[in-house]
Write a protein that binds this DNA or RNA. Sequence first.
DNA 1: TAATAACCGAGACGGTACGTCTCGTCTTTTA
DNA 2: TAAAAGACGAGACGTACCGTCTCGGTTATTA
Lengths: 189, 189, 189, 189
Amino acid sequence: MTDHRAGPVRSEAARAAILSATARIFAAKGYDRLTMEGIAAEAGVGKQTIYRWWPSKGALITECLLEGHLLPEDFTPPDTGDLRADLRTWLGQISDFISRYGGGDLVRSLVAASAENEDIGRRLQESFGADEILASRLRAAVEAGDLRSDAPVQEISQALLGAIIVRALSRAPIPDEGFPGRLVAAVLG
Amino acid sequence: MTDHRAGPVRSEAARAAILSATARIFAAKGYDRLTMEGIAAEAGVGKQTIYRWWPSKGALITECLLEGHLLPEDFTPPDTGDLRADLRTWLGQISDFISRYGGGDLVRSLVAASAENEDIGRRLQESFGADEILASRLRAAVEAGDLRSDAPVQEISQALLGAIIVRALSRAPIPDEGFPGRLVAAVLG
Amino acid sequence: MTDHRAGPVRSEAARAAILSATARIFAAKGYDRLTMEGIAAEAGVGKQTIYRWWPSKGALITECLLEGHLLPEDFTPPDTGDLRADLRTWLGQISDFISRYGGGDLVRSLVAASAENEDIGRRLQESFGADEILASRLRAAVEAGDLRSDAPVQEISQALLGAIIVRALSRAPIPDEGFPGRLVAAVLG
Amino acid sequence: MTDHRAGPVRSEAARAAILSATARIFAAKGYDRLTMEGIAAEAGVGKQTIYRWWPSKGALITECLLEGHLLPEDFTPPDTGDLRADLRTWLGQISDFISRYGGGDLVRSLVAASAENEDIGRRLQESFGADEILASRLRAAVEAGDLRSDAPVQEISQALLGAIIVRALSRAPIPDEGFPGRLVAAVLG
DNA sequence: TAATAACCGAGACGGTACGTCTCGTCTTTTA
DNA sequence: TAAAAGACGAGACGTACCGTCTCGGTTATTA
């Protein structure tokens, strides 16, 4: 028996246009000036087509995030064998990204969205590569003897990403090349 | 609400009513459902009386923060001579506060306000005692030999507070009594 | 032979369901709350099936009218030889109908549809029997000497029906049994 | 004195602009293409300013009607002593008006509005002068012996106006100069 | 009797308008 | 004479329908 219902199928073109328009406006104007009407107009789509598939602005941004429209770069920490150097590289990538794109505006918008929307909040660490990949990297370092066996892996990840976020919220510019180094020194001694 | 009336003499009462109403709504409904019209109604005040004194919602919240209406508790780290124990105490106070008040809702609202408003962002660390007081405490530890002389004081503060914020944004509850200890271990080894 | 195209034939069941649903909603909710989507849902039919056969809501209502779904009763004036008595009977039938069905709601809906749609407007007099049948009745009265030979037949019909419509639009209830008599007296002296 | 509340007073400029814009669009596009958003835009006014003072499109049109924005002309029947001649003059004025303005479009829009809105319906006869003025004219004719003492005054008024409306709804153009005469002949013999 | 073609229910699509809410400014009345 | 009350222009919200356009499934005619 056919388990698919009759009727037209969701328009992939509309879906792509909406996500793309959302990402464009989010990057250009920030979370709080991102409106559903603006998205619909930019995407050349009726508002109902957005509301038909996403219940809220947050859900839309979540999907943008998951599809990589908002943070086009990949913030995976490398694995060279030297944990601290790898973390410095990773933090340097994020710092560079922030410096290049509006000096923290995009991060702040992402944090504002996270504060308002549960799903986005849950995926925040993931978005910056501070999730399972970093955790497994840290666990490998424990096995290699680079970290103590009782090192609190999750707290280390949160502290590193959190420092970046606090800095973005405080509007302090990333000062110079030394920041990743100092942050790794602060967290891993 | 309060018994103030029209007239120039009562302006201080209006000011207090506005700040109090702002704090009450902020705590009850969060930053994004805090409206100027709601504040005016709750305070029994005309909207213009708010706009006469504060240029924006952010400025209003900033003043609430500075006057201690939003975070009624004082998050000053103690000074017992044992830096790590003091930090654990401090983080424990914050964790307790979060657990007691809505499990992070208030922190998230504060973060949302920080993301939107520059002044609030600048005072974010200060609000949680992660500012000069903590910095001087860390510098004293350097002098006492508890920390290396090149310890990156600011990054340590940001990492500690940031870990709290990332946890709040990710909606993970503070798990148990061990969190402050693990976080201090993560940051100061 | 290509005098008949390939494919299935128009579904009589769908046609009947649509007309019936239209009449039901028209009577229950009135012209302005009659929606194409509502008709489709009520009839268990796709919207396209309606638009395939009728170009507009007005055309649909016109067909309902012609098939007697909207005004289930037949408002043909009788022919007893006494013109004025026949007209009183006819106007009494219409008055009774109005009193029985929502006190003018249906007439008002019909008038609203007539104002918006040309075809319905053209058939308005016909719907109430104020068309050819009434005209020939009046012409017969002229021949019988009951009316002057230059009696303006069309204007008499329009005045009689128009008085009913004006009364329905003014929301004045049909007051008592005397109305048809007074109206005939007003128009034919 | 508390006979007037504190606060600003209703803007007469906004009120006038709204009524004027409503009348302009009503005349130009008809009732069913008259939108609240269109009115607001045309009047240079926020939508809320309309909804603050009028609950519905119908209420707005009612007020337009009462202030004479919709039917700029005065359809008062004259009083020369010759009732039938006066009625012919009056019906001629209305016929001329209909011919000059879109051939019935405005009347149909008014009828559509009457069908939808109770207040407009109640004032329909009044709008065309078929109310108290005409009634008193007819009563005077009774006293003067021009009409029988039991002439049904209200029904005569409704029949005259109704014939005009039925003609407008049927989209039949007012044929020539003879129509008012024939209609008076039809109604008053 | 297979292919074809138009039908069917279903419903997604780009739009328009709805009526509500809040913004930040401006104006009037009151105490 | 400042504060309350609240009207104002602006514009986003989320919903309801419009009329058009697919979908896949279902017949009836035609080759």
